[in-house]
């Protein structure tokens, strides 16, 4: 198999390097790619949409339909992980493990069916040795709110600086994943349950698609934000800018929700127990 691999990649690699010979030189401002479509975007994105960040303007307005399906791709990935991994069957265990929080002693209790999962003094765990690290918990607990604020900044400031819905959503999800890693999956499920994560992602994609449908209702083409000026009480250009913010919020919600959902499913192989 290794020899086949080497032969394949040598053949196709030489073909591919040969194929680059006709390319325009790297960084040439006069190459067709840099002179055909992009000039229009650079010159007109400000008068068309009043968004200084050209990437955001193209992403959420000129090619907004792509972006809607990009959000759908990540939503489909969340659904796919759920469909493949989620395990609703609960194995009946003979015993379950609890940790006494003040002392850190692990208790093994038989016939524990009618005991609550967590009380103030006891915490349910799944393996005999689960480290309890005060330093990580405290430190990540301190960091998480700042990361979340930064995520909100990245979403809201996508018009003026690099950033936007995806990046902000991923950062928001990452903050929560940090919490889930340093605490445990059970505790994070109490804050954002599986249902909440799903609803968050559904609503996020729904905001995007709903904005598009709203444009249909106002008589223009799908996702043509200009027609939203009637309900936003502005001119069409600033309506586009506002609608882009709206859409970015939807994308952020969807991505954050899906990231959390993906983490839940993959880290616990769908069992939703203690996790990593």
């Amino acid at each position: 198999m290794k020899i086949i691999g080497i032969i394949t990649i040598l053949l196709s690699g030489s073909i591919m390097i040969y194929s680059t010979l006709d390319f325009p030189e790297w960084g040439d401002p006069l190459s067709p790619a840099n002179t055909h479509l992009s000039v229009y975007y650079i010159e007109n994105s400000m008068p068309d949409t009043s968004v200084p960040n050209i990437v955001t303007a193209i992403l959420a307005d000129y090619r907004s339909y792509d972006t809607m399906f990009e959000t759908t791709v990540i939503f489909a990935a969340g659904l796919a992980c759920f469909l493949l991994l989620r395990n609703f069957r609960k194995k009946k265990k003979e015993y379950s493990l609890y940790r006494h929080i003040p002392t850190g002693v692990t208790l093994k209790i038989k016939n524990s069916a009618d005991l609550a999962d967590d009380t103030k003094l006891f915490q349910r765990i799944d393996s005999t040795w689960v480290p309890f690290d005060l330093v990580t918990r405290t430190a990540s607990g301190l960091i998480v709110p700042f990361i979340q604020i930064f995520a909100l900044y990245v979403i809201a400031h996508g018009h003026h600086s690099p950033g936007g819905g995806f990046q902000g959503g991923v950062i928001f999800g990452a903050a929560f994943i940090l919490f889930a890693i340093s605490y445990s999956l059970r505790e994070s499920l109490k804050i954002i349950s599986e249902k909440t994560a799903v609803i968050l992602s559904c609503v996020g994609v729904m905001i995007y698609a709903g904005t598009g449908l709203l444009c249909l209702l106002f008589g223009s083409n799908f996702l043509n934000y200009g027609s939203l000026a009637q309900i936003l009480f502005t001119d069409p250009v600033s309506a586009r800018s506002l609608a882009i913010l709206f859409v970015e919020i939807g994308v952020g919600l969807a991505v954050a929700g899906v990231m959390i959902w993906l983490y839940y499913n993959i880290s616990s192989s769908g069992k939703y127990n203690q996790g990593l």
Partner: peptide, 9 residues
Amino acid sequence: NPLPHVLML
């Protein structure tokens, strides 16, 4: 050119 950046996002 901003277009490839959009596509790559």
